[in-house]
């Protein structure tokens, strides 16, 4: 981290913004969970050899009957709820981030091409985007998953199919105005190939608004994935995300075994809340209109 960053206006505003700091603390905690989560629990929840049915449905440790080995209680297979959450957070975050990166790459490429070349290509890409935007993402994802079947790879495809549009639109808009500018004309006169102009000159100038979109999208994707998994058309049972853990907890909620669904939900909430807090700060900082 260079001295210019520490003395920048961005960092100055960040230091004074309590919710931005709170958001980043939450995100750092989750980063630690994703990287080192399994180190915090003794049990590997998906190694059948480590499960014992005698441990099933133990309440959290502070309630009567709690077991110190299972801080947040256990589910029907004697799997620790905390262990499930730590492994599940990995799956949820991995899906959210990967799908965001895929959407960003595909959407940005489509937007750059549409904005740079215009004409029929532009019309075709934007028409697809328009049609897609008139449907809620959740419904498109649900429909795609019902056609594909469950699986992490399929969830990633469905989320990308839903997510690319917002990048394509944003990038196309800014590309259209960048192409008019003199530096692009100059690059053309200098005889640079289109691919190089797009990559070296246009792309860096249309990136900034994407940062906010990408940040918030990770949160949205985590929620959509959780909803899909809750409906049984998301990740497979062998690699449960937080959403699937909640679904499994739902089946026993009526018997009063609340801890199997309450805790995974609190984790999703904290994770997405952290992302949104930070995204809100970025939006205010990077939006020149509000300055």
């Amino acid at each position: 981290m260079s001295a210019t960053f520490l003395s920048s206006e961005f960092f100055h505003n960040y230091k004074r913004n309590a919710s931005a700091i709170a958001g980043s603390i939450i995100l750092i905690i989750f980063a630690v969970i994703v990287v080192a989560g399994p180190l915090f629990v003794a049990q590997d929840p998906y190694d059948v050899g480590q499960l014992n049915l005698l441990d099933s449905y133990k309440p959290p440790v502070w309630l009567e009957g709690g077991d110190p080995r299972f801080l947040l209680g256990t589910d029907g297979q004697g799997r620790g709820v905390l262990a499930g959450i730590l492994y599940g957070t990995r799956v949820s975050v991995m899906i959210g981030v990967t799908a965001m990166l895929m959407s960003c790459i595909i959407g940005t490429t489509a937007g750059l091409l549409a904005g740079f070349y215009g004409g029929r290509l532009d019309a075709a890409i934007m028409r697809i985007a328009d049609i897609q935007l008139s449907f809620p993402s959740m419904l498109i994802a649900l429909f795609l998953m019902s056609a594909f079947g469950t699986g992490i790879d399929k969830v990633l495809i469905a989320l990308t199919a839903v997510g690319w549009v917002v990048y394509a639109r944003t990038v196309r808009g800014s590309t259209l105005s960048e192409v008019q500018k003199e530096y692009v004309q100059a690059a053309r006169v200098a005889g640079l190939r289109d691919a190089k102009i797009i990559r070296r000159h246009v792309l860096p100038n249309v990136m900034t608004p994407l940062i906010v979109v990408a940040t918030v999208q990770v949160g949205t994707f985590i929620l959509i994935e959780a909803s899909l998994s809750f409906l049984g058309v998301g990740v497979p049972i062998t690699q449960p995300s937080l959403g699937l853990l909640i679904k499994n907890g739902f089946d026993v909620l009526f018997s009063g075994l609340w801890w199997t669904s309450v805790f995974p939900g609190l984790f999703i909430m904290a994770l997405v809340f952290g992302i949104n807090l930070f995204g809100d700060f970025l939006r205010d900082e990077l939006n020149p209109r509000l300055k």
Partner: peptide, 18 residues
């Protein structure tokens, strides 16, 4: 309102039921 956007709605429903 930010919390409202961050909540998985199905989980809220389950909590209300519970």
């Amino acid at each position: 309102s930010l919390l409202g956007i961050s909540l998985p709605s199905f989980w809220v429903g389950m909590m209300l039921i519970f």
